[in-house]
Design a protein around this nucleic acid. Structure first.
Length: 299
DNA sequence: CGCGGTCAAGTGGCT
DNA sequence: AGCCACTTGACCGCG
């Protein structure tokens, strides 16, 4: 089991998500920003290794406007060696890596342009992982997309796009996460049936909407969609409800009792856990402590 | 230099 | 009909 957090480190005084407005786009600005982002990413990865945080989500913003028409610069070539060195560091330290294209990536949209943009974004993020030389256990996680009043048809469209439009390099890394209102674990399992994509499990979303599966069974069902060797072990996002807040809001800081309970419930199952909790590495460090004490981090 | 409005992109639920 | 939330900040113009 590896434990980690997404995108941002609040201890370090740098960001790997620096960007700028479209209106101020220039090649010089792009190169400068990417260089700073990758330098910061290196520092974050080193911090993670030093603190036993072996799972990390790379920000979608490493390369600003990477899938936008305005960006015609060959950043892939320009930063080839930098990406490679980052990848070497990741592999040398046995880190697990994911990326999470944001909500604008919708493979089953009825809008053709939206689908095209979505694929371009997936190609960008896949390219980052490819340039790092990471194997296909490094994943791109997306959601099922919209339902548009006819979920079965929307799922068919997802499969159609998957089979006919996605490059193999993206398919090899793609996985689908249950969301908190539209695509339940069951729906995701359907998408798995249709395409073979592994299901990345989100415990908090599952609590928000489900079909009655107890947590342990839900984890096992999702885990069974990960092909050993090709995909690696199950990845999951972990969070819990912010007390006294709107339903679905993530907590500010890990609730250790709840995390303990979750680990107890999944005793004997192996998975890599991404803590989607606002205070980032601070909670992840507590989670590492707790999981270690419960004997879950061994090998 | 700090603040608030706004930023490439989509969808659905809530008010 | 419009706002908010989503893995979310970060930029930029204004005072």
């Amino acid at each position: 089991m590896k434990i980690g957090y997404p995108c941002i480190n609040q201890t370090l005084d740098c960001s790997s998500s620096r960007t700028f407005r479209l209106a101020s786009y220039s090649e010089e600005r792009l190169i400068d920003t990417v260089a700073q982002n990758l330098a910061c990413l290196r520092r974050i990865l080193e911090y993670n290794v030093q603190h036993g945080l072996l799972f990390f989500r790379l920000t979608s913003d490493l390369v600003p406007f990477a899938s936008h028409a305005v960006n015609t610069y060959n950043w892939q070539e320009h930063f080839k060696m930098t990406f490679q060195r980052l990848g070497d560091y990741i592999k040398r330290n046995n880190l697990r890596i994911s990326m999470h294209p944001d909500q604008f990536v919708v493979l089953n949209s009825p809008n053709e342009q939206t689908v095209k943009n979505s694929i371009a974004e997936l190609v960008y993020q896949g390219t980052v992982l490819d340039l790092m030389g990471l194997d296909t256990t490094a994943k791109l996680q997306i959601h099922g997309g919209g339902a548009y009043g006819d979920k079965p048809a929307a799922m068919e469209r997802f499969a159609q796009v998957y089979h006919t439009m996605l490059p193999d390099a993206v398919k090899a890394r793609l996985c689908v996460e249950n969301d908190d209102r539209t695509y339940t674990l069951q729906d995701c399992l359907q998408l798995h049936q249709l395409t073979g994509v592994p299901i990345i499990f989100d415990n908090f979303h599952h609590e928000c909407v489900n079909n009655g599966e107890p947590m342990r069974e839900a984890v096992q069902m999702a885990a069974s969609t990960w092909q050993a060797g090709r995909d690696g072990i199950l990845m999951m996002d972990y969070s819990s409800q912010a007390p006294n807040e709107r339903k679905g809001k993530h907590v500010q800081s890990i609730q250790e009792q709840l995390f303990h309970d979750f680990l107890a419930e999944t005793e004997g199952l192996d998975m890599d856990i991404m803590l989607e909790i606002k205070d980032k590495e601070e909670s992840a460090l507590k989670a590492v402590q707790l999981a270690g004490a419960m004997g879950r981090l061994a090998l």
